[in-house]
C-alpha cells in the first residue's frame, strides 16, 4: 500500500513519517474490514525511497504496533508514483 487519502482516493504525498502513518492507518481499517487487525499482522515488508530515512519510518511505525510487533523487512527501492514509502503485510484472519 502507498499513502492514499481515503476520502478522495488521491495520493497523499508527504514526509516519510506522514506517509507511514497514513498507510498504516489505512491498512488497519482495511484489515478490520476483512475481519483482521494490525495486531494480527505476522509479517510486514517496508520499501522506502532512501534508507537514510529509516529512523523516520521506524519511529512512526512503532506507534502502530505497541506490543509484539510483526516480523519485518525494510529495504530501499525505487517506488512508483512519487511515493516515499510503500508497505505490504501478511495477516491472520
Amino acid at each position: 500500500m502507498a499513502a492514499i487519502d481515503p476520502a478522495t482516493g488521491e495520493p497523499a504525498h508527504g514526509t516519510v513519517a506522514a506517509e507511514t502513518q497514513q498507510i498504516l492507518t489505512n491498512m488497519g481499517e482495511l484489515l478490520e474490514a476483512s475481519g483482521s487487525s494490525l495486531a494480527k499482522v505476522v509479517k510486514v515488508g517496508v520499501l522506502i525511497y532512501s534508507m537514510l530515512e529509516y529512523e523516520n519510518m521506524n519511529s512512526a511505525y512503532r506507534e502502530f504496533f505497541p506490543i509484539d510487533p510483526p516480523a519485518r523487512t525494510v529495504c530501499g527501492a525505487g517506488l512508483i508514483g512519487g511515493h516515499k514509502v510503500e508497505i505490504e503485510c501478511v495477516a491472520l484472519v
Binding site: V42, K43, V44, N58, Y61, R62, F65, D68, P69, P70, A71, R72, T73, V74, C75, V90, L92
Partner: peptide, 23 residues
C-alpha cells in the same frame, strides 16, 4: 535487533504453520 538497534520488529512470528522471519 529490536534491543540492539531499535528496529521495531520481532525476530520471527509463527502463524498458520509457517515461520515468518524478519529480514
Amino acid at each position: 535487533l529490536r534491543r540492539e538497534y531499535g528496529h521495531h520488529q520481532s525476530s520471527a512470528i509463527r502463524a498458520g504453520g509457517l515461520i515468518f522471519c524478519s529480514g
